[in-house]
Design a protein around this nucleic acid. Structure first.
Lengths: 200, 200, 200, 200
DNA sequence: TATGAATGAGGTTTCATTCAT
DNA sequence: CATGAATGAAACCTCATTCAT
């Protein structure tokens, strides 16, 4: 593994653990096994390192997204598909990877407006596109009332966001089982909470 | 307005804008219109000031919650009630108050584990209790399939969380109309996304 | 007791305990039972207060000296008189009063050259005069070889100084019984350490 | 000379001149010819620097002691030996080195109880041991009534202490010739102040 | 390229002193 | 006279960044 990547890997750990301001370049260097000055041979400043770290940390999330996107069109859109969608996400959420990055993005977006934009362009926008595609497909096939939320596809992301942040903040006070939680959401989203539905 | 409150008001602004580490006590003092040393007459340290600020900032949210709790039992639980619930929240979210505080809590919970707990105990736990009460009432009256999400009442908070954070992070890239978004969520939650539902 | 004296009494305690630099005017005021501003009605500054405190603290030592001086001429000068002299001093040393003041003078004489002078003029010079008188009297009466140390009367103060500082610094590591120690010194000074003495 | 020693040398000067509290790290750094931050590369804090300074300053005194200890057993114990003992000390006292350190120890022992202990263990205890050895040797050889002060060997240090502090505090008001003074003390100690001694 | 000792700007905190009440 | 809230200068210490080796 080259030195640049060793530094990036060390840096993401420290930034996630301490936040931007509390991260010392010394600690990054030590964790990467290089001297302090070496970091500056690869990254112009702490700020530049941070931005590179974020860019780098979004890669696995983007890849997970692309992978899901690739598989999307091969299956019908129905309740079962929605459940499968969340089940895949659940596994990824459990790794803790997206949560740590997301918290970092939320925390530092005030100081680095750029990273909110990067996150949006890299993760959110493609993710919404993916969801829109699914919703349209379901609507066309008549298996899914996708038009209902066509303008707000992010409603389907909301429970994921909650799960991710819950694990970061409240897991110690009231544990949340991500898989079960997302399954519940999928049930509710598919069937609705009102028992007697007016027939259209 | 007394000096302590002037300092708290100045501090919340600066903390929200810059985060804990980048907030300089000088700036808080200046914004509050007092000398640097005066802040220390009221708060023992930057850390103590921050904790007081969080405590103080949660008050209006807690009050909003309590207000909603008071009205809750007078009305039937049905689709209309759920929509009204989100409409009230929407107005509050639009003020930007809960979003700023939430971002601060998320950002600094790594450095101050206590504030995640405070937030949980002050806002989340009572909020969940409130929701559970509504779900049970609806279930008993037969107007609401509350048992479906009884174990995960936070599904109903998920869209609020998303709206709050969206405004903080992505509003500039893709604006979100909180009221419409929550309305859409309520529709979906009530009626479900699957057109043909098996009758119970 | 008037307020000025209450402040002086509080101040000597705090100065002795903490030293000049570590003494806070707040603590002096609180210990004196007055408000912080009140101290400044009586003493122009911390420095002025300190000088007044030293002046004030030397009074009892000076009085003890004067008392001894008054009694001095009524008795013959011999070994017994020397032992009585140290016995009186011993009692005073045991009170801890002169030790605390002396340590303060030694400690702060770098910052306040004036207090070394005050101490010299108030305590040392009169003390030496007292001793010189005794030595002369003994020499005249032939009961004391006072001329031997006539030029250096402070040799007789040396053991007192040692005892005083020992109690301040080393009492915890190796206790010193002031009375016995001074008695030993007096024996040595009177009889000498060399067994076979040439007869004069 | 390495940087650590340059800082120590600068620091002892400033600490001696100003005392602990009034010493500014900036001044130490400037005097050592390094930047402020550099001091902290070698000493963790002002307190740590001070302790190192004391430790360092005690070294020459301890060495002087050890040197005297080495020579002690080669010569008989008599009046001449005692005079020689004080003459050696006199030369050392005149350098001003032990006086400055001793004043610092006395001044700051309230704030740093540890340094009184260090001083005791490093200087006083070995010094007393040295003196006890001499006294015992003299007693065994019959040339010295060492048993008289066997329990209080520090009487022989008392005039040294006085000379050291006199130079620090009162030299300007009444100069003291250390060599003559100690010589006088030795005379008195050897021969005694009482002309007619009862024969044992 | 790599190192790590050195730098110095800048932040938190303390506390003597003032002054309106 | 008395108060004590307010002031702001000044001190310790950190850490991003540089540069001689």
């Amino acid at each position: 593994m080259n030195k640049q990547d060793r530094i990036l890997d060390a840096a993401i750990d420290v930034f996630v653990q301490r936040g931007y301001a509390d991260t010392r370049m010394d600690e990054v260097a030590e964790k990467a096994g290089v001297a302090k000055g070496t970091v500056y041979l690869h990254f112009a400043s702490k700020e530049a390192l941070f931005e590179a770290v974020i860019e780098n940390a979004l890669a696995p999330i983007r890849e997970a997204l692309e992978f899901m996107d690739g598989n999307a069109h091969q299956e019908p859109v129905d309740a079962e598909a929605l459940h499968r969608f969340y089940r895949k996400i659940s596994g990824f959420v459990e790794t803790g990877v997206p949560g740590a990055v997301m918290r970092l993005v939320i925390a530092e977006s005030g100081r680095f407006p750029g990273i909110a934009e990067t996150y949006f362009k890299t993760i959110i926008e493609p993710g919404l596109g993916h969801l829109s595609g699914i919703l349209d497909k379901g609507a066309k096939e008549g298996t899914f009332r996708g038009e209902m939320i066509r303008e707000h596809p992010m409603v389907l992301i909301a429970p994921v966001l909650l799960a991710v942040l819950w694990k970061q903040l409240f897991q110690d006070f009231k544990p949340l089982d991500t898989a079960q939680f997302l399954d519940t959401f999928a049930d509710m989203a598919c069937q609705g909470l009102i028992p007697e539905r007016k027939q259209p």
